[in-house]
Amino acid sequence: MNSHSDPHTDSGATRATTPAATSPKERLERSAATQPAHKISIRDLSIRYGPFTALSGVNLDIPVNQIFGIIGPANSGKTSFLNAINRMDMMRANMNVQGSVLFNGVDVTSWGNVYALRSKIGVVFPLPVGLPLSIYDNVALSPRLRGINNKSQIDEIVERSLKRAALWDEVKERLGSLGSLLSGGQQQRLTIARALSQDPEVLMLDEFSIAVDPVTTMRIEDVLKELKNQMTIILVTNLVQQANRLADRTAFFLNGSCVEVGDTDALFNGKVRDQRTDDYINGRFG
């Protein structure tokens, strides 16, 4: 189905060893790699917690306005990877990050105001976190943090965010009730609405469907397909087929290293460089 025979990784070292590009599509991608068309670029990223290495030597690029899937079994460093991007490592005393994360071509560690950086990157956690505020206040929190006090402006942001997260119709009559009282699937969409209320450039989802029923999962997946026209999405998922359904490109993490990065179509059609990727995708381990 895919025209090119060699799913490449984005790491500079492996790129040199791959044969010359043949298909137009691949040439296009190669040239894009040299331009700042990547929202996020990871270079030699290693993460350690004390003596324990969670992730080592990761190199990859995340293109603009695509869904970038990350698959891999538990403890393969997926969540640590996300934490390094929005600099949540600052809150964890024992988390040590080395290498560089380039956001719009600039190293995230060079941001003087890390809060401004985080407000450009929305995060959805595995378990829904409905803050003990009203539904309205949950979504209005981020605009208020940014200093927006105009009621009608906040009203508009809240409505738009809840609509984008496919939750508006279910809660529009009771915006004043507690967000933490919603059902799990609704809370997860509330979390997504909250992340969208900051109009992020990047939306990171960490196994969002872990506590969500299949029907709601499908609804959220439809939402994500819509959203990728407006933002870059990083989708960490424990469901291999979810990556297949949604991701444009997919990375496979295993035991703290990035085994392979490639076009999702290619990876799921057996065009893998590493046999372990194929084994994992087809459920032969993990």
């Binding site: 949540m88 985080r118 003990p132």
Partner: peptide, 16 residues
């Protein structure tokens, strides 16, 4: 702690 992390991920400062 999930509350704190959720707020911090939204770009809230420690005081916020």
């Amino acid at each position: 702690d999930t509350y704190r992390e959720a707020a911090e991920a939204l770009g809230a400062t420690k005081w916020q």
